[in-house]
Design a protein around this nucleic acid. Sequence first.
DNA 1: ATGAAAGCGCTAACAC
DNA 2: GTGTTAGCGCTTTCAT
Lengths: 347, 347
Amino acid sequence: MKRPNSAEGRVRRSRVTSFDVAEAAGVSQSTVSRALAGSPSITDETRARVEAAAARLGYHVDARAARLRSGRTGTLAIVVVGRTGFDPTRVSGFHYALLGSTCAAAAECGYQSLVSFQSDPGEFGWNYFAQGQADGLVVMGTSVNRAAWADLLKTDPEGPVAVWGAPHDDGRWVRADNARGAQLAVERLVNAGYRRIGFLGTVDSEHPQFAERYQGYRETLMHSGLPAIEPFDVSGADRVAGGREAIERLLALPEPPDAVFAANDAIALGALEALDRAGVRVPNDFGVVGFDGLAAGVHAHPPLTTIEPDFAEAGRALVSRIFDPEGEPTRRVPVQLIERGSVRPAR
Amino acid sequence: MKRPNSAEGRVRRSRVTSFDVAEAAGVSQSTVSRALAGSPSITDETRARVEAAAARLGYHVDARAARLRSGRTGTLAIVVVGRTGFDPTRVSGFHYALLGSTCAAAAECGYQSLVSFQSDPGEFGWNYFAQGQADGLVVMGTSVNRAAWADLLKTDPEGPVAVWGAPHDDGRWVRADNARGAQLAVERLVNAGYRRIGFLGTVDSEHPQFAERYQGYRETLMHSGLPAIEPFDVSGADRVAGGREAIERLLALPEPPDAVFAANDAIALGALEALDRAGVRVPNDFGVVGFDGLAAGVHAHPPLTTIEPDFAEAGRALVSRIFDPEGEPTRRVPVQLIERGSVRPAR
DNA sequence: ATGAAAGCGCTAACAC
DNA sequence: GTGTTAGCGCTTTCAT
């Protein structure tokens, strides 16, 4: 049994290698590798001996060597895209939750998660494949960072990629079931007896998620025989402020709505603030439903009723788009109405 | 120039290697390595030639090989510890913020972040060093997960470790400046004219952070000539519910306090709810200060005044404990009073 | 079912 | 300042 790694009889090897385990277990080094990798062609008895020896010596497979040799990394790269010019880690609670779920989903598949927060040109980097750092890439973040999404599209890393939040449809996206969410939200408002239901959020091609929610809002209202209203624009980076301002414009109308479906929870939270300030009683005189299931909504006044995507499923959908590209992976993540308190009881 | 990696003249190499770049640039492979690694012993002219060739061929250093050879990984492992029995990714916004800041701090030092969420025995794993997966380990999370912290202590991974949230003092901790935070909070309440100021939070050896905050609370009150009160216990996994219940007990007292410093924002948020429900007007008749700077506090009713640690510094402190163990790294992260609205103006 | 041998692509020690 | 050489520790053929 040759041991190319070191001369026999040295005082102390710095690291326990598979050769040490092989020697201790009385097998060859390749048997150690196979036994520990769970190869079916190894006797239970041999495997037990190898495992015992490994445990005794405190041996652990060196991931660096395993990766170099096998070409795989067992790692999923996750990039969280923030708003240009802002601290890249100050992303919304929604993206943190989605990040967590994606890490968990990766772990379920035996993958580790390499996480990076990026918001500015110059710090963009999707090059995980060429550098042998990951076997897959998930990019999630705000659609408003045009530069980041454009850069991703341009770079087009050659490896499996899944995306949440991109303003473009390049076939790698996973999204909430926005149509269904809008339907749940609007039906709930209708059933509560609100009669003029508005939509808070910018609707254009750069906000496909919002556009889908608006579309669902329109269709559901039509089915209910109620009028859909032109969306109240919420532009600007600060969604909360945007929600506030939208409500101010809305209340100044001759015939203001008596409820809104907000394109997301940040907008809804701003709306709640402005309504409170204007003395409008929520939910009695005005209903609000958000979208995202933000934790902050729990402590709002009143607590925000919202549409929450199934985060665990969202993580799994992103991961499965990458590691089971054959299977028909979910692109639409199921959503749920979370009753909290910004909509009065159904009639 | 030998190319052990492949016979010359093969049809197509699957991967561009440093040998290809060397050939294209007319230098040796090791010069390519040095040039791209930024070695100072390479001429600007040579480096330029190498970089041009690398760019032309689309070459990128293979991290797997570089790591195997150098023994380093350029990676920081970050473990987020959640509550036993709960979804490991449903951790508080505080820990998500700290996670983000730590990733950012690691990136500042040129390190990548390998993130993992762990909450249950059986899924614990701190073994990043033996497996050659990371050069450092940051563990952060809730002190209530006894099993996790005990397991970390027992396993004692042999490599640089830094910790936030552990109930034990093993010399690797980084924490908020809890004493200073408590002082800022209590002084603010005193200046607003509240006269019976309570503390919401369990104070025992398993909650060193809370104990430090209580200690700071006591000392500041003494300096102000006001009475300190025995802490209102907040046990149970759900801090928000705990805060609610603590307020109920507090209000039932013959001489209830007229303000509280809550050991953290979750407790404070629960307190705010219970006060609202009881018809106590905050901040006019009752002051509340929290701790953590939770985003949810912004939308509470009223918005929660709180003590916020400098997250960016917290991340840097954790990372520097690992990568500059020589320098005297910050163990106490500075805090700041964030005025929001749950304390009335100072007199 | 196991062993022998061949590298994965790079960094670093050593020469010059 | 650059070239030569020797592995890092493993997985994976290919034999047997």
